[in-house]
């Protein structure tokens, strides 16, 4: 089975751009960002900006809120919280069909990647505005998208892991999923700041690009945060693989016993 005909990829594209419940969430994301943007938009002249400096905060606040929204929606998308009941259930599919587990995970990951890109695109107009008015460069905007995208991918894969682990028990899923994501963000921010996406976004908003050494600093913060995001996603994907493999083994065993 190739990626081109991967049923999870195809079904994801069909479902996530047709189902009314999911479509509505595409409005919530920019709407939330819009409110924050209007609230934190710098008011007054340049002199007041120079004295009080809210511009950097405008970018940082919008970016961090964007991160929060992406982590929240990403986790819940990953756990298929918004998916219709008609959608193929992951564990049933795995246990009832002989499709290789790697293909399943690759299909899911491929769709996650494309869908995360789409979500970033949805919020981009409201992130680019403070980037521009804050005097930041486009390279910093792309760096911010890399931080946001990798963090969101990690959250989605964690959501998939929780889904594969717990199955169709939405309340329990969310009890584990959302605090788990929050814990990840808090722990990286408090214990390992250089690895935190929030720290990376704050660095992006406060470092002048004219200074070569500072430019290196923001690139290293971006790279560290992105690598952590990718690493967490890979770990979660490995967890999904193990859980699904165990499930398939148990199903095979019970079928043999039965």
């Amino acid at each position: 089975m190739t990626m081109r005909v991967n049923p999870f990829l195809q079904e994801g594209v069909r479902t996530y751009f047709a189902h009314p419940g999911i479509l509505r969430t595409y409005f919530y994301l920019p709407a939330g960002l819009a409110i924050v943007l209007v609230v934190v938009w710098p008011r007054g002249g340049l002199e007041s900006i120079l004295r009080s400096g809210p511009l950097t905060d405008a970018f940082s606040v919008v970016a961090i809120v964007f991160l929060g929204l992406l982590l929240y929606f990403g986790g819940r998308y990953g756990a298929e919280d918004f998916s219709p009941d008609t959608m193929v259930q992951l564990r049933e599919y795995v246990t009832l069909t002989p499709v290789p587990l790697v293909s399943v995970i690759l299909g899911k990951a491929g769709f996650f990647f494309l869908h995360t890109f789409f979500l970033l695109l949805l919020g981009a107009p409201f992130l680019l505005a403070p980037v521009a008015v804050g005097g930041l460069s486009l390279s910093k905007a792309f760096a911010a998208f890399a931080v946001l995208g990798t963090a969101s991918l990690a959250a989605r894969m964690f959501g998939l892991f929780v889904l594969s682990l717990i199955g169709d028990r939405p309340l329990l899923r969310n009890v584990i999923l959302l605090p788990g994501i929050l814990l990840f963000v808090v722990v990286t921010l408090v214990a390992f700041p250089p690895l935190s996406p929030i720290h990376a976004l704050l660095r992006l908003g406060s470092t002048p690009t004219a200074d070569a050494s500072a430019g290196g600093a923001f690139m290293s913060a971006t790279a560290a945060s992105s690598l952590v995001g990718i690493g967490a996603a890979l770990v979660a994907a490995a967890g999904v693989y193990l859980v699904l493999r165990v499930s398939r083994g148990a199903r095979g065993g019970s079928a043999t016993n039965g």
Partner: peptide, 16 residues
């Protein structure tokens, strides 16, 4: 859904 954010993002950057 792809075209609208793309245009809005480009416009946002250019304007601001």
């Amino acid at each position: 859904l792809l075209a609208i954010p793309l245009l809005a993002g480009t416009g946002s950057w250019i304007v601001f």
